[in-house]
Structures are given as C-alpha cells and as structure tokens.
Design a protein around this nucleic acid. Structure first.
Lengths: 154, 154
DNA sequence: GTTGCTGCAAAGCTTTTGCATTAGG
DNA sequence: CCTAATGCAAAAGCTTTGCAGCAAC
C-alpha cells in the first residue's frame, strides 16, 4: 500500500532493463530516501551530495532524476511549483493511482502534502459533459498556512 | 459578468497609474483580443507582431505581458502548461474570483477551458482539517479529448 | 568485451537586466 | 520637461547534449 521505495527496489527494477545500477543513481535515490517529504531540485540534490563529498556531476544528477521519474522506473515524481526549476519527490502513490495534491503557502513558501482524492466526482462529471477522459490531474492550492495566518493576525 | 477586456479597458486602467499607455502595450493586448481562447507564449506574441510588421523587441513583449498580468491591471493571466515556457491568455474571470481550469489532451496537446468551480467544498474542508486558507488554486486535468478518444478507438 | 554511463564543458532555452535613447503625459 | 518605456545586447538562470574516457554486467 504505502509504497516507500528503497535502494533494493531500484536494483530490482533495473534488473530486467538495459539500464545499469550505477553508484551515482544509487546515491541520488538515497538523498530522497533520507529526506522523505522534501521536494528537491536537481541543484539541491547535487549540493547535498557534494557536502557528503560524493563527487557527481550536475548533468548526471539530471540524467539520474530523469530515469528515476520514467514510466519504467517510476520511483520519483517530477513536480513543478512554478519557482523556476523542476522539483522531485519520492513517488508514494500506487502505480495506477494519481492522488497527490500540494498546498503552497504564498507567505513562507512551505509545501504541504494533501493526499485525499476528492476530485473523482468532478472527473466523472467532466467525462459526461465534455467527453474528456481524465487520466491524471495536477492540483495546486495557494494560500496561507496555519502558522503564517497566526503570525499575520498578531 | 463575462469580462472580455478591450483596449479601452487598458487605457482606463492605466489612467490612474504611473504607467503609460504605449503603442507596444496596446499591440500586445490586441493580439490577445484578436485571438480569444488561445494560450500564447511571449515568443508567439512576438512572432505574430513581427508578421504584422509591428516592430517590437522581445524584451518589451515580456515587460508588457508582466504589466498586463499584474494585480493592478489584471487583463491577462499567466499559465504554466509545463511545456517549457509561460503562456498567457485574457483573464476572463471576475477580479476576486479564481475559477479557471484547463484540460490538456495528452495526445493532441489541445487545451480545453473548463470554468466551473466545484472545488469550493474541498477548499472549505482543507481549511477545517489543515488550517490552510486557500486563496487560489491551479487545476490541470490531463487526459484524452473526445476526438482523440474516437480516433484511438478506430 | 559490449554497452551504457559519467564528467566536463559547451550549447540551448526561456526570461531578465543594464543602459543609452525615445516617447508619453 | 520629466519620468517611464523601449531596444538591443548581454547575462542569467535551468536543463540538455556531445564526446572521450570509464564502469557495469
């Protein structure tokens, strides 16, 4: 159910593919496993690895992220928060589900996860009215988180 | 109600501001008025104007788009479809409302507007459960439009 | 030994910025 | 006239790519 991926999953998924389980791909994945719930950019992943003196090129980080996000692997998920760069996170959803929402505080820029899937009714409605078959959605809520609301109230 | 903006609106909105109603700003807006429902990138706006032999720099297009999207003016709306560039469209919503959804066909890349606001209940729920005050949202549905579904079925 | 991967640097994109010149009000 | 806007070119992000050397299997 709660599919928290590990390094073994990577090894397994690469087993039956032409792709190789390289040291670089493993340390990139490790960063996400060690930082659950965080939305990292390629540069941030690169910085974290540099601090650990894991010498890896930024281009390789990009290539590893691309592979880990691919349909074949699907261990990571690419998200766009509109802050000028792509961000990545562990893909915690089931292979064929798509429930994943984010709330972004416009004050402190914090990103809060929101996992309920209440859009099913809406999607059914769209199919009926527009003939559009929704296969995935991206929902972002912007607003003020609890802390910022309290701060501003004071 | 259906606030379709025109050049007069721009003039009016600029009247009481330090900003000037320049030729360049007017022709940029004109492109959108003449192409309703289309989602143009800065480069596309620039190309359209070049074809009309309206000589305007790309940087100026960007600056005009920024102004037209600003809270003060609000005639345009910036959207991100994840295709590598920002796109813009006439802002057809009321000043303080935020209902605007897009359906993006993953096959033909067509963008369909979807204007109902059925997320209000969900947002009320979020406020209650998470203390997060939603002030705006961005909803994108990905899937297959009617034509592409028929095409694929055949 | 193949085949694919890495690192580096260079290039590709979109978007922004600095600055001298021009044009609104 | 004064202030803001423009045009151009240069620079600034993020991301991709080409290629010689290297590592996985």
């Amino acid at each position: 159910m709660s599919a928290t991926y590990s390094l073994d999953d990577l090894r397994q998924k690469l087993q039956n593919s032409p792709y190789k389980c390289t040291h670089q791909r493993r340390v990139v994945l490790e960063v996400f496993v060690n930082n659950p719930g965080v939305h990292l950019s390629a540069e941030e992943v690169h910085d974290i690895l540099k601090q650990k003196s894991a010498d890896i090129g930024l281009a390789t980080v990009y290539r590893a992220l691309e592979l880990l996000c691919s349909k074949e692997i699907g261990i990571l998920q690419k998200i766009d928060f509109g802050d000028g760069c792509s961000r990545y996170e562990l893909n915690l959803t089931e292979p064929n589900s798509h429930q994943h929402h984010h709330m972004i505080c416009t004050n402190c820029k914090k990103v809060i996860e929101f996992s309920e899937d209440m859009l099913d009714d809406l999607e059914a409605d769209i199919m009926k009215k527009c003939g559009f078959k929704v296969t995935d959605h991206q929902v972002k809520f912007f607003g003020l988180c609890e802390e910022c609301r309290n701060e501003i109230a004071n």
